[in-house]
Design a protein around this nucleic acid. Structure first.
Length: 445
DNA sequence: AACTACGCTTAGCTTCCGCT
DNA sequence: AGCGGAAGCTAAGCGTAGTT
């Protein structure tokens, strides 16, 4: 019975008893009015208000009065269809789509309504999709009515952007695990349940404040935390973080402590909140799964903000800023070969921390470079970039034509204790750096 | 298998400053 | 000392409109 309560039944009571509230509710779409009515009626004890539509009406009024003012004053905007909103935009000269979407989201949050069940949102999105699909940007030669729509082009663009993001994430993994010897962590950070009722903006500010405090402490302690964060929406449209993070193993305990201090609600499910990264590709895929959805943002930590545009340019072989042609050319080759991503990243010099960028300088900064594999890889970068060994990119060579360059490599960067007898450089199937009988060899296949 | 332009929002960083 | 809020800055990001 309660489920069938419609706003119509209480409209008259509200109009005569509380005209002020009635006027405020007037512009609200009837769909939302009914959802509100049914929610309030469902909240009542069955016997207490089964027959009393008046009681329901009073409760609705009381409930509306608890809503924040900005939401109530947005009732008109959030109820408009896509066409109506376009009309309003033409009149006011303002862009209102995002505002309307936000208002609807916050209304859904107080109503405990999922986006899928929000018919107004669904039809708004559908109309918008139709509009962008029917706008033909690049017509076919034969039939001008078909061709590439604005929607097609946007999807294409998103796909490109997504691929770049995945590639950078993979390179960052390669760099952090290879050059820094760091451990990869996969964090899932959520807000306590009490934040599921407030507005989206408040929840987002809160989770961002918490995560910021962790990063701030790390920065103050001069602890490097490269990684990538993805802010996503849960089903009830509360934001949560997925974070791919790399940390010095000796700082890991400290970091976990700080994370749990900032997110005390995660203490109980610590094993889920903080995981080791074993398969970087699946983690990156998971992090980027919502890419392109509204309010889903992907940010790299420890890389400058123009990393994506720089990566894209270099991928296309274009010059970028003050980066030398040699760096662009080498990085371009590596990207094309999908090998040695960490090296490519170093050559791009786009780390926020200059000490990382200086690893690939002629006089390297060894602040973050440990002994062992990291030093070896750093040596490899120098061999590649400063061309101590000329034939690195030559076509396949047989073992007998390996070039012996003992002295030149040694004077560039290698220290005699860093290379084991024979090792395969991780991430590349085409390149081996070897030490045989006291001599260094670089073999390109 | 685009491109420009615009305006608003946001992340990340820095600095200041009050509190303890 | 250390923490953390507030505020300001800048470059990116985002959503959109308009166009050929």
């Amino acid at each position: 019975m309660q489920d069938d309560v419609q706003y119509d039944e209480i409209d008259h009571w509200i109009r005569t008893t509380r005209p002020d509230i009635w006027r405020r509710l007037l512009p609200l779409h009837v769909f939302y009015k009914n959802v509100i009515t049914q929610k309030i009626a469902g909240n009542c004890e069955f016997l207490a208000c089964f027959e009393e539509t008046e009681q329901v009406a009073m409760d609705v009024v009381a409930w509306v009065e608890t809503l924040p003012e900005d939401l109530v004053s947005g009732f008109n905007l959030l109820s408009q269809s896509y066409d109506e909103l376009k009309q309003t935009q033409r009149i006011t000269g303002q862009v209102l789509t995002r505002k309307a979407n936000r208002l609807r989201r916050n209304l859904r949050r107080v109503l405990d309504l999922s986006p899928e069940r929000d018919r107004i949102q669904q039809s708004f999105d559908a109309e918008k999709l139709t509009a962008s699909k029917t706008f033909i940007v690049v017509p076919d030669r034969q039939n001008p009515d078909t061709g590439l729509s604005a929607h097609d082009l946007r999807q294409w663009h998103l796909k490109k952007h997504y691929a770049v993001t995945l590639a950078i994430a993979d390179s960052l993994h390669d760099f952090a695990t290879g050059f820094l010897d760091y451990q990869g962590l996969f964090l899932t950070l959520t807000l306590p349940g009490s934040y599921h009722a407030c507005s989206y903006e408040e929840a987002k500010a809160e989770i961002s404040r918490r995560w910021k405090s962790v990063r701030r402490k790390a920065r103050e302690k001069d602890i490097l935390l490269p990684g990538m964060t993805a802010l996503e929406l849960q089903n009830d449209e509360t934001p949560h973080y997925h974070i791919q993070l790399y940390v010095d193993p000796s700082q890991r305990a400290w970091l976990e402590e700080q994370i749990l201090q900032a997110f005390p609600n995660e203490v109980d499910r610590q094993a889920d909140a903080i995981k080791d990264i074993r398969d970087v590709l699946s983690v990156s895929r998971y992090l980027t799964k919502d890419y392109g959805k509204p309010e889903t943002s992907l940010t790299f930590i420890g890389l400058t903000r123009d990393i994506r545009s720089r990566y894209t340019s270099i991928h296309a072989g274009k010059r970028y800023g003050t980066l030398s042609d040699a760096r662009v050319a080498t990085a371009h080759r590596l990207i094309k070969r999908k090998a040695l991503g960490g090296t490519a990243l170093l050559l791009m010099r786009r780390f926020s921390d200059e000490r990382l960028n200086r690893i690939s300088a002629r006089h390297p900064d060894f602040h973050y470079v440990r002994r062992g594999m990291p030093r070896t890889l750093t040596a490899l970068v120098h061999v590649m970039h400063f061309r101590t060994v000329k034939d690195f990119n030559a076509s396949p060579v047989s073992q007998t034509s390996m070039v012996r360059r003992q002295n030149s490599i040694r004077t560039t960067a290698l220290h005699s204790d860093v290379i084991s007898s024979c090792l395969e450089v991780e991430g590349s199937k085409n390149c081996w750096l070897m030490r045989l009988a006291g001599d260094f060899w670089l073999l390109a296949l």
